[in-house]
């Protein structure tokens, strides 16, 4: 459904963030993108919705060549890709409801957006999503009154209300505590299953990556160095991606955590 062909990103400073990355993601697959800081994970998902313009290569979403779209068509295509951010990136001075509804901006006109007159079904859907993530009662609160985990839930709602085919998730747990991190990851995972969404999740935590994805892609210095199932992440592979370290402890816990998480 999403296909990256030889994508390269070279920043103006000369830094090469992505080198010739090719990747294909079938419908409904949740993949975790792992790799050390600066490996180009963030750049990769930003290239997909062209918040960052790739220097070379093409990206296809279904039959649409994203890399060739005009600004107007790009906006239409972006509606099909929900994005969830590392620091939540909620507009802090807007209410929770406005933040969720902002996911529908691609579907409404300027004045509708200005007067907050969103279609009834959008408002209903917003309430439904907020209810789904347990924040129904927070709709009128300002986003900056929420805790980190709550903000990320709102961020998830904003992405989902777009009714996307694909989720781009950038370090969703980086600013959260371990427990909340798991809850958020589980939530994203469940929602993807419910809706049959494909997702690319950038994640630092190898552990969480293994727990909550069907496939793992490893990036190192802008190059794809691993692509396989979660249990293919043997110590040798991790060493390849991150460098030398004692990896046994990291991997062993997985099953235990899975049980705990399912309780």
């Amino acid at each position: 459904m999403l296909r990256l062909e030889n994508v390269t990103k070279r920043y103006k400073t000369g830094d090469v963030a992505l080198k010739n990355v090719s990747l294909e993601i079938p419908e409904g697959q949740v993949i975790a993108l792992i790799g050390p800081s600066g490996a180009g994970k963030s750049t990769l998902i930003r290239c997909v919705n062209r918040l960052v313009e790739p220097t070379e290569g093409t990206i296809w979403l279904g039959d649409t060549e994203l890399t060739a779209l005009s600004p107007g068509d790009l906006r239409k295509a972006r509606r099909r890709m929900g994005m969830i951010f590392q620091e939540y990136a909620l507009v802090e001075r807007l209410t929770v409801m406005e933040n969720v509804l902002s996911g529908r901006l691609g579907y409404v006109g300027f004045w509708q957006a200005w007067f907050r007159k969103f279609p009834k079904k959008d408002v209903r859907e917003a309430y439904r999503l907020l209810d789904r993530v347990g924040l129904m009662h927070m709709a009128d609160k300002r986003a900056d009154e929420l805790s980190g985990g709550q903000r990320q839930r709102v961020g998830i709602c904003r992405a989902l209300i777009q009714d996307p085919d694909l989720l781009l998730v950038d370090e969703p747990t980086a600013s959260l505590d371990p427990k909340t991190s798991r809850q958020i990851m589980r939530l994203i995972n469940e929602l993807c299953k419910e809706r049959g969404l494909a997702a690319i999740i950038n994640i630092h935590d190898v552990h969480l990556a293994q727990m909550y994805s069907q496939r793992i892609v490893g990036l190192k210095a802008g190059e794809l160095v691993f692509d396989g199932p979660p249990d293919g992440l043997v110590p040798e592979v991790l060493t390849e991606i991150y460098g030398e370290e004692d990896w046994e402890a990291t991997i062993e816990d997985v099953d235990e955590d899975e049980e705990e998480a399912s309780k």
């Binding site: 209410t95 907050r116 408002v123 209903r124 859907e125 309430y127 439904r128």
Partner: peptide, 16 residues
């Protein structure tokens, strides 16, 4: 999207 009998409100007003 939700059915017409949805338990969720149809409109929302920004608090003043």
């Amino acid at each position: 999207m939700s059915p017409p009998t949805s338990p969720y409100p149809n409109s929302w007003k920004k608090p003043h």
